[in-house]
């Protein structure tokens, strides 16, 4: 039988012949981005980098804005103050330095740039506020709180209600963001990121999109986003200055 088979055909034709490409690799030697992404990221960020509990990674706006170094650092060290854990082996994760680099680089190149239904205009990317805030301390004075509240009302209240309590305000799915438990699980930088990029997968508009916002709404500036983040941070601390909001 074997001899027959040997004469009849080349033994490459047999489906059972192992393919060197399928050779099992030890975890720390995997270098394929798709495999690494599926094993390490999809649990929270979703199968195709969207529609997971954590913010989408296939968001072209996000990928365009975040500096390479920052992206690399977030994967390596995690995001303190959020559920995002450190993935580098030296920080208690499971990935080698090389693998962290592969994921960081792969994220930027994996989703083709033409997938920009959500970012309707390249200008939105071009005009976007910087990913990292230039302000070092986000602290609101009592006067500034009113200003930030007004801004919040214009930019966020349609979904999240004026005091951030969420509720049935047309875009009912917005939900509460004045919840102290929620705010304790999201860092200021993560808040800034989500205000800039929105969540295209769950319907949250980005910094410039007009959905559910007043007609004269102007794209949020970097300083305005700082103000909003500071407002949310004050809710997180439960500041008296924050008034009723956050209760």
């Amino acid at each position: 039988m074997v001899a027959c088979a040997a004469f009849v055909g080349c033994n490459d034709d047999f489906p059972g012949k192992p393919n060197p490409a399928d050779r099992p690799l030890p975890q720390n030697e995997i270098t394929d981005f798709a495999t690494l992404f599926a094993q390490n990221c999809t649990g929270c960020h979703g199968a195709d980098g969207e529609l997971g509990p954590a913010p989408p990674l296939n968001d072209p706006l996000f990928l365009a804005l975040i500096p390479d170094e920052t992206l690399h650092a977030v994967i390596r060290d995690g995001r303190p103050g959020t559920p995002m854990p450190a993935f580098a082996a030296e920080r208690g994760g499971t990935l080698s330095t090389e693998q962290v680099k592969i994921i960081a680089a792969g994220l930027k190149s994996h989703w083709p740039a033409d997938k920009t239904e959500e970012v309707s205009d390249a200008a939105i990317v071009a005009d976007a506020p910087p990913y990292l805030s230039s302000a070092t301390i986000l602290q609101l004075t009592p006067g500034a709180t009113d200003q930030a509240s007004t801004l919040f009302e214009r930019a966020c209240a349609e979904c999240h209600s004026p005091n951030g309590a969420g509720g049935e305000t047309g875009y009912a799915s917005g939900g509460a963001i004045n919840d102290r438990a929620f705010l304790a699980l999201i860092s200021d930088q993560a808040l800034r990121r989500i205000i800039i990029t929105g969540r295209h997968d769950l319907g949250m508009p980005n910094y410039a999109a007009p959905d559910g916002r007043p007609e004269d709404f102007k794209p949020l500036t970097s300083a305005e986003i700082d103000e909003l983040v500071a407002l949310l941070a004050s809710w997180r601390r439960g500041d008296a200055a924050a008034g009723d909001a956050g209760k």
Partner: peptide, 9 residues
């Protein structure tokens, strides 16, 4: 809600 999403994470 945002809280529930963080909870899922």
């Amino acid at each position: 809600t945002p809280l529930e999403l963080q909870g899922a994470a």
